[in-house]
Design a protein around this nucleic acid. Structure first.
Length: 929
DNA sequence: GCGGACTGCTTACCT
DNA sequence: ACAGGTAAGCAGTCCGCG
């Protein structure tokens, strides 16, 4: 039976669906009492736990070589990902089970009813959350630089007297002046007295440490760290040290105390979290987006997938018409006769899971459920959830919105090497687990119910799998980032890297008894920019890019500095308080070619942080992740740790140059790049003196042609001696093809792999057909070792190009292959200065097809003849509309980048295009080989 | 009124 | 809500041209 009919049946007698408000009568058995938190605390039952027993998959993932620091396998762009769709059903077995009564700290918050901060612990034995409300009497506070007596006479403080519990004096170290000072601690009852309201104290007088979320302050003061294990002694958390593995103990021997601390904490096992993925389907009319803030259409399917193997799909079937299978894709189909019953049924299941997973649940699924339940008369729904401005937390645990997590550029680029570029469940799942969503060919109303269920359950399934693949990689990554940042796991998944770094730095300040400087204090510090930025709109000068020597270069060695900027920050003591420090005696320690000086007396807090995590990553976790004597499961775990560390290490320099960062200080960011340019310049000079030929370099790398082994070693030693920085061989190319363009080249490595950088043909906005030709040509060039082979390849290449042109001219290329995909990066109405082609196309989508084109949409359009210029692919009716000449030009300009230096030239007049071969230089080149 | 030279905007890439 | 450097295509403008 088609769902079409099925829905019509109940839609007709559903007045609400036609926009008329009706009173909803709750089902008789409505005895749902929202789980109070106390209730959850003491709950012992696994009575209503998962239903389906888990089935170990037994399969292991292919042992692919991993790229440096890449948590995913392979390089998606060039060779396609090593796919591994397997999901382990069994929990990771590599670590001994933790004793009973040991819990992991995963979150914290402020209970405004109790007026107390609370901690959320995860109990790995019972697989539930334990909420611990503060018993220490900790109270919110902030600091003033006024003395107590002065404060007590202060006009404003007097006005707030009733809200202030206490004022005490304390000694703190001021990192900006490097002096110990007396500050006054103003203790209050309610965090909102300090900040968060228009009339909060911090808006009225100058306060320090007044913009730290209270529950974080609480964690810092109690010395608690997210992701660590604790036992509860009379309800108070006491740290529980997990016995380190033998390989960790071995590594610890050579480390400093500070490094050991990090090593032991990060190496603690991450247990398998009990969790449930949730996904809803709303029955909306065609082309109408369901609005969570005004949920007019019914929730008719809820799919649930538990980490314990539970698979259930709840279906709304008011008339009892469903006669399809009772099980779809392993999901048990549960029928509900009314929508509220279905919502409550879903709640009953998810409240037994401490962690809820969604994809976009903050913005869609959870608010939709909440507002829909309210609309159906179930006001108590709000007791199940705490709603923030842009987030929803379950009252009994935490909610991880994977959309936000994967959208985070640090996660996308550093942890997953940009394996996905569009942020959607489908694209991310395809890239990471090799599985996508099920296509929906048409509107729900045209589909069989079972077909819809299949579609719906796949969403829950892949949402879960995104957290489960590679031994729970994503859950472990989130936990490790929690450990490094000391942020609650829910914050980790929602906030950006600058916040993670800020948070750890706040903790470090507190630990050192430093008074945390206000932003304006750091910015008022002396020190200015020394070089005019090259690029308009930039604040300071960045890296140096060496002009490439165009041509084919055989036998090229690439040397680079291992994480140059972090190393500079570590070795040259760069931090907001050490750059232009207060000591006169440090003023001679100048950054080259500037008047900026750096402290010689005290270790900078950021320098120390980046130094420690850089060292334990390189010296321990990276090493262990490659140690073949360890079981794969352990290596995988250490790989996650080193990958998480890498995210921080790579971002720290960047955030110090970002105005959004609390510890932003331009001279410190500028000092890093100035050192960087100086060091790379000096390295070139040294190389040249040694007789090494540098043909290209970018930021931290040198491309050296036919490098003599000994001279290369001399270079490396000399640099090490002078700068205390490690230069190392990164790559060896059989040959590299450079044009005169920077950041544009390709090369074939010793093992025959093709490396393509920056070339037009690689870019995501190049039409598939042109990309295909581009890769065909490179494939012909890949194997070449001598002039004869080149001549052969040249003929083939010319043939490929000529045929492609002909095909384009005759319009034999399918329209789909000519699509140009460009991201609409901001709201469509904010393109006011110019109207780029993709915006033109987007407007047509909006106006003619009434399609929504929010920022982030990828607009797919083609170039057409006539006044229209461009058309979104959706509006192309006739392939003859295509502007072939435009595509021929695009093809040739794309190929020009690689053909130019190979002496294959394109006729200037591109009306009648032909390939011209200017013989000469190439043959000579080969003769030198 | 037209076209080349130029600048600015926008996107996607590299490190 | 991490940085700057670079390439490319197009939009829009200026200027010369009797």
């Amino acid at each position: 039976m088609s769902l079409d009919k099925y829905f019509k049946l109940w839609e007709e007698d559903d007045p609400e669906y036609q926009g008329v408000e009706v009173e909803i009568i709750l089902p008789e058995e409505d005895t749902n009492i929202p789980p109070s938190l106390e209730d959850t605390d003491k709950k012992e039952g696994d009575s209503d736990r998962g239903l389906v027993t888990s089935q170990p998959s037994g399969k292991t993932s292919p042992d692919g070589e991993q790229k440096d620091g890449d948590l995913n396998k392979g390089d998606s762009r060039d060779i396609g990902l090593g796919q591994d769709g397997d999901v382990e059903e069994e929990s990771p077995k590599s670590f001994d089970d933790l004793p009973d009564g040991v819990y992991m700290l995963i979150s914290a918050g402020y209970d405004s009813k109790e007026e107390k901060p609370f901690l959320l612990f995860y109990d790995p034995r019972r697989e539930e959350i334990i909420k611990v409300v503060d018993q220490t009497g900790h109270k919110p506070y902030a600091y003033s630089k006024m003395r107590k007596a002065e404060l007590e006479n202060n006009q404003i403080i007097r006005m707030y007297a009733s809200k202030i519990l206490d004022i005490t004096e304390e000694e703190k170290h001021d990192p900006l002046t490097d002096r110990d000072i007396i500050v006054s601690k103003i203790v209050v009852r309610d965090p909102l007295v300090i900040g968060g309201r228009k009339d909060s104290l911090r808006e009225r007088i100058e306060l320090w440490e007044a913009d730290i979320k209270y529950y974080l302050n609480y964690l810092f003061d109690l010395g608690l760290q997210v992701g660590d294990y604790y036992v509860l002694a009379d309800g108070r958390p006491v740290r529980y040290d997990v016995d380190p593995a033998p390989e960790i103990l071995r590594e610890a021997e050579k480390l400093s105390e500070e490094e050991k601390e990090w090593l032991f904490r990060l190496a603690q096992p991450v247990i398998k979290f009990r969790r449930v993925a949730l996904d809803i389907e709303v029955y909306n009319p065609p082309n109408v987006m369901p609005q969570p803030e005004n949920p007019e259409h019914p929730i008719f399917i809820v799919s649930l997938r538990g980490s314990d193997g539970m698979r259930r799909v709840l279906l709304l079937d008011r008339e009892g018409k469903y006669n399809g299978s009772k099980e779809v894709e392993g999901y048990e189909v549960e029928i509900y006769r009314d929508e509220l019953g279905l919502i409550k049924g879903a709640l009953e299941v998810i409240r037994t899971y401490p962690i809820i997973l969604t994809f976009n649940g903050d913005a869609f699924d959870l608010p939709y459920i909440i507002n829909r339940a309210k609309k159906l008369g179930f006001q108590n729904i709000t007791q199940y959830f705490r709603q923030g401005r842009n987030e929803v937390h379950p009252a009994w645990g935490i909610h991880i919105d994977l959309y936000k997590f994967f959208k985070n550029p640090s996660i996308k680029n550093y942890a997953f090497s940009g394996a996905y570029d569009i942020i959607s469940l489908d694209t991310i799942a395809r890239a990471l687990i090799g599985k996508g969503k099920v296509e929906i060919p048409e509107h729900f109303s045209m589909m069989e119910t079972e077909e819809i269920l299949r579609y719906a359950v796949t969403d829950a399934e892949i949402t879960y799998e995104l957290t489960a693949f590679n031994n729970d990689l994503v859950m472990r990554l989130i936990t490790i980032i929690g450990r490094i940042s000391n942020m609650t796991l829910d914050d980790v998944t929602r906030l950006a890297v600058s916040n993670w770094i800020r948070n750890r730095l706040l903790y470090l300040h507190r630990k050192k008894n430093y008074l945390i400087p206000r932003e304006d204090e750091i910015r008022r510090k002396q020190g200015s920019r020394h070089f005019e930025p090259v690029t308009k709109g930039k604040k300071y000068v960045g890296a140096l890019v060496i002009d490439p020597v165009p041509g084919i270069h055989f036998d090229v060695t690439v040397v680079d500095f291992a994480s140059l900027y972090p190393s500079i920050m570590k070795e040259y003591n760069i931090s907001y308080e050490t750059v232009n420090c207060p000591h006169p005696e440090c003023r001679e320690n100048k950054v080259p070619k500037t008047s900026t000086w750096i402290c010689t007396k005290k270790r900078g807090i950021i320098s120390e942080f980046v130094g420690v995590i850089r060292d334990i990553r390189v010296n321990v976790f990276k090493k262990l992740s490659k140690d073949k004597s360890l079981p794969r499961e352990k290596r995988d775990f250490y790989n996650v740790v080193q990958g998480a560390l890498k995210v921080f290490i790579n971002a720290i320099y960047g955030v110090t140059g970002s105005e959004a960062f609390q510890f932003y200080y331009l001279p410190s960011a500028e000092a890093v790049t100035t050192y960087g340019r100086y060091i790379i310049e000096e390295s070139i000079k040294t190389a040249q003196k040694l007789g090494l030929r540098v043909i290209y370099g970018d930021t931290d790398s040198l491309f050296i042609e036919k490098a003599d082994k000994e001279k290369l070693q001399q270079l490396i030693d000399e640099i090490q001696r002078r700068f205390r920085l490690k230069l190392e061989v990164d790559k060896e190319y059989r040959y590299v093809v450079l044009s005169s363009r920077k950041k544009n080249y390709f090369g074939v490595t010793r093992d025959g792999a093709l490396d393509i950088k920056g070339l037009q043909g690689k870019k995501s906005n190049t039409p598939p057909y042109i990309k295909d030709i581009f890769y065909q040509i490179l494939d012909h060039l890949r194997g070449i070792t001598n002039p004869e082979e080149f001549e052969e390849a040249r003929k083939d290449i010319i043939k490929i190009i000529n045929e492609a042109q002909e095909k384009l001219a005759k319009k034999e290329v399918p329209v789909e292959e000519l699509v140009i995909s460009v991201t609409l990066s901001k709201p469509i109405e904010s393109y006011t200065k110019t109207t780029p082609q993709h915006v033109k196309a987007a407007r047509k989508l909006r106006d003619k097809l009434k399609r929504e084109v929010p920022p982030g949409s990828v607009i797919r359009y083609v170039k057409v003849r006539g006044r229209e210029e461009v058309l979104p692919i959706e509006l192309v009716r006739d392939p003859r509309e295509i502007d072939s000449n435009k595509y021929i030009e695009l093809l040739l300009s794309t190929l020009e980048q690689i053909l130019d230096v190979l002496d294959i030239h394109v006729d200037n007049k591109r009306k009648r295009v032909q390939i011209v071969n200017e013989k000469g230089t190439l043959d000579q080149f080969f003769k030198i080989q």
